[in-house]
């Protein structure tokens, strides 16, 4: 058994919170670079250039890329051969507390959805844990801003709606969101499962690098088709018009009930953040 302490976990989570908020993953940066090169509309091209400048400036000045440093969504893959010394969830909350304090990140969490008093330290973290084989603990911190999160949607479609119904729902979600989620957007899409699982699938899809297609060719084709349709809407960067409405999207699918066709769209933006580390 490998022993991992509460302190080791807190230190890792703190580091990942700061890293995720100040430097974008390579796949998102590359997608932004490629989008700018291929963007035909002058205002859109200029706007994408300013978003690139923002990334450079954030790096130079040690500033967060976006002021909405998000809810700390933390995904844990816990090896079954790991012996934890201390409490896993408390270790993660403490890591978030430290990371958001030491990194001068914004505290954006209220302790109650209706009484709305800020918790002051960005806790609690929103934690999803999976047991996996092996003796490694892998943690991904994916800070999620509300501008895009608020534009996310879920529908329990009828099986008769089929793939056309799914496509129509996703496109409608993008059109309804318009300029609100700070396009160019990134989409995590869940199809199948149950009411709760489909939302999880959509969130999980945002963790997959956008240059990695779905391993199932049927769903990889669907991803490509949806991306082309979304980039034909004309919304463009910031909603000012142009081709680049979406930098990339990922679909995650799973079995479902004979009478169900759940679909969920987790909306994200050009600041799709994630940082991963292992112990």
């Amino acid at each position: 058994m490998k022993v991992i302490t509460q302190e080791e976990i807190s230190s890792l989570v703190a580091r990942l919170c700061i890293q995720a908020n100040t430097s974008l993953p390579a796949d998102i940066r590359e997608a932004l670079d490629k989008a700018r090169e291929e963007e035909p509309w002058p205002l859109a091209r200029a706007t994408l250039g300013l978003l690139q400048d923002n990334l450079t400036l954030a790096g130079e000045k040690c500033l967060p890329i976006c002021q909405d440093t998000g809810m700390a969504c933390v995904f844990v893959e816990l090896g079954q051969q790991v012996a934890l010394e201390g409490d896993l969830e408390e270790a993660i909350h403490e890591g978030v507390r430290r990371g958001y304090d030491q990194g001068y990140l914004r505290k954006s969490v209220v302790g109650d959805p209706l009484n709305r008093v800020n918790t002051g330290d960005n806790t609690p973290a929103f934690i999803t844990t999976h047991l996996v084989p092996g003796d490694t603990l892998t943690i991904t911190v994916a800070p999620k801003g509300a501008g895009s999160e608020n534009m996310s949607r879920l529908a329990m479609l009828k099986p008769a709606d089929g793939v056309e119904g799914v496509k129509a729902f996703i496109l409608d979600t993008v059109l309804k969101a318009g300029s609100n989620p700070c396009p160019p957007i990134v989409l995590g899409i869940g199809i199948g499962g149950s009411f709760d699982k489909v939302a999880y699938l959509a969130k999980k899809a945002l963790l997959r690098p956008i240059d990695q297609p779905n391993p199932d060719p049927y769903y990889a084709d669907l991803e490509q088709e949806l991306l082309e349709k979304i980039n034909a809407t004309g919304i463009g960067p910031q909603g000012f018009g142009g081709r680049t409405t979406c930098l990339g999207l990922a679909i995650e699918q799973m079995p479902t009930h004979v009478a169900c066709l759940p679909v969920a769209v987790n909306m994200s933006c050009h600041v799709t953040r994630r940082a991963t580390g292992s112990l």
Partner: peptide, 22 residues
Amino acid sequence: YVGPTPERPGCCIGAAGPTTAG
């Protein structure tokens, strides 16, 4: 419409982009 991040020592403001106006 903005809620900036906390300012680092020596800086007058943190990151300060706009929030959703709607």
